[in-house]
Each structure stands twice: as structure tokens, then as C-alpha cells.
Amino acid sequence: MCTMITQSVKIDGSGKHNNEWIQLEQANVSFDHPFHAPYEHTLNIDFVNENQRVAVELSESAARDLVQTILSVLNQAETQGHLEKQSV
């Protein structure tokens, strides 16, 4: 069942929802039943703001690969001097 394993983190960015870009405020990360992906449990990320949700459901290996890839891309960007201070 429902593992109820969940954590949230405040985020800053945008996501595409119903063909429109929306501002995202939080990511809810869980390892629990998916609604769509064909597995019993998946690593789920709900990128949300107060009323809207952009959802992904990933197999465990896909989630691990994604994390490594994100970190690798960020490291590469840092090495090449692209991580200038972001202004909001």
C-alpha cells in the first residue's frame, strides 16, 4: 500500500500545465502508489503552487538516474562558469 513516505521542498521555477506556463512554489516528493506509471510504487514528484500540479511518476531506477543527471549537468554548468547569481 501506501507507504506515506513523503517530503516537501520549496522551489522556484515554472512548469507547463495544460499548455500554459505556471509558477511553481513547492515540490512534493513521495515514494508511493502512482496513478498512471505501471508499477506498484514510484518516485513521484508533484510540482505545485496553491491550486495547480505538474506531476511525474518515475521508476526507482529512472529517479536515481535523473538525480545523477541533474547533478552532473549542474556540475558541468558550474565548471563552465554558467552559474552566475540568479536574480528574481
Partner: peptide, 13 residues
């Protein structure tokens, strides 16, 4: 139902 359940999931049930 999915969006509501996702809120409940984020809230730990």
C-alpha cells in the same frame, strides 16, 4: 480525484 489524492499524499495521509 488524482489531484486531491496527491494533496493528501503530500500531507502524509
Amino acid at each position: 480525484p488524482e489531484d486531491v489524492a496527491a494533496k493528501v499524499r503530500a500531507d502524509g495521509g
